[in-house]
Design a protein around this nucleic acid. Structure first.
Length: 187
DNA sequence: GAAAAGATTACCT
DNA sequence: GGTAATCTTTTCC
């Protein structure tokens, strides 16, 4: 699916595509979360794909209590906890998802969204959001990236995993100051 | 039922 | 650059 107008909200069908394609197309997209204090939004600058037959994926060993959302419909929001922090993914095809790793600062406070835990905290996402679905008018919505990104997309190894560390399935916007450390590989 | 590991972050030297 | 915090899920016995 090609990128479309900058005002287009992504429908669940957008996520029903190969995970690597979805991951790349999410760079530059805007994630918005509506909450009691008003909507909070960030423009994605870094994501990671967790695909099929992927030893690093939470779904590698099949459905479990934790990863059940990954087996739900495309466009689902899979939230998991790690070390007192929550991280958010968008479900693509069955058992696959894209981890949201970093975005531009959020709100007038310019709260940091650089890093998967900080991104969730900045948007006000909690474990209670696990299992919700992307929708134009709901709590969690995603607006399409511009037709053409100003900057190139960089592929590099994923962060913080111990298996399948060779797969370059981390995608980031080249030169963005908000990409989480230690920064994308330059090659 | 117990133990280990973890898609992280903050703070230390 | 290294490590502690901190706790749930998973995995193994």
């Amino acid at each position: 699916m090609a990128r479309s107008s900058s005002e287009r909200w992504l429908a669940p069908a957008f996520f029903d595509r190969p995970t690597l394609e979805v991951a790349r197309d999410l760079l530059g997209a805007t994630v918005q979360v509506r909450g009691p204090g008003g909507p909070r939004a960030t423009e994605l600058v870094e994501v990671e794909a967790y695909g099929p037959a992927d030893p690093a994926s939470h779904a590698y060993r099949g459905p479990t209590r934790r990863n059940r959302t990954m087996y739900g419909p495309p466009g689902g929001v899979y939230v998991y906890r790690i070390h007192q922090v929550v991280c958010a993914n968008l479900v693509t095809r069955r058992g696959e998802a894209v981890l949201l790793r970093a975005g531009t600062p959020v709100g007038p406070e310019r709260t940091s969204a650089s890093g998967p835990g900080r991104l969730c905290r900045a948007l006000g996402l909690t474990f209670a959001d696990d299992g919700t679905r992307v929708s134009r008018t709901g709590r969690f919505s995603v607006r399409a990236a511009p037709d053409r990104l100003d900057q190139a997309i960089v592929a590099s190894p994923r962060v913080g995993i111990s298996r399948a560390i060779d797969r370059p399935w981390r995608f980031s916007v080249a030169g963005s100051p908000w990409v989480s450390r230690p920064g994308p590989r330059l090659t």
